[in-house]
Amino acid sequence: MSESKTRKQHGSTFLLRKYLISTFVLASFGAYVIHEHNGGSTTESSVTAGQSTAQTNGTSDASLATNSTTSADTQQADPASQASTAPPTAQAPTDVPPTPTTAPPTAVASGYKDGQYTGQQIDAFYGIVQVQVDIQGGKITNVQFLQYPNDRQRSAFINSQAMPMLQSETIQAQSAQVDIIGGATLTSQAFVMSLQSALASAKA
């Protein structure tokens, strides 16, 4: 009687140990999978939430550097060409006093007095854009945003775990014909308008 009881106890201890070991093995495997999943190669074309953030952080320095050079070119070249070749974008909205910049492109580079000029506040419909331009030696040396529609910024945690894998690609310019162009253009037009008004006062 007592012997069988002891055997029973032995049996249950054995069973418990078996469960513990199985649990440990499964947990280890689970942890390994999660580790591989999160820290896994960023060369894959698919990304999860964590990976896309990591990718962005890793490359942001380089991209910012690229941005600054390309933007500098556009800012010095664009206002002149926009003002002279694209009349529709040069029109001010109805509730803003018009600030026509009618000077030919050649006069743009040399006609400005040195100093710092503030552009008008331009209604980009979802917010206000206002720029300030620095002129040195008759040339634009810097353009700053004094106002910018960023008030929809919110910071909150969004649970993006257990999401299907999304795909990613490096963007490439397309040459195909299109009927319509979609995209955020408002702020850029407001930028040009505010810049034009700043440059108009730089001439006066």
Binding site: N67, T70, I171, Q172, A173, Q174, A176, Q177, V178, D179, I180, I181, G182, G183, A184, T185, S188
Partner: peptide, 23 residues
């Protein structure tokens, strides 16, 4: 559209407003 196809919409390149990156 005028050619009997679905409207073709280009998505603007945020780095260059004169380019599209997807149709």
């Amino acid at each position: 559209n005028a050619w009997g196809q679905p409207w073709r919409v280009g998505i603007r390149n945020p780095f260059n407003m004169h380019e599209i990156v997807k149709v």
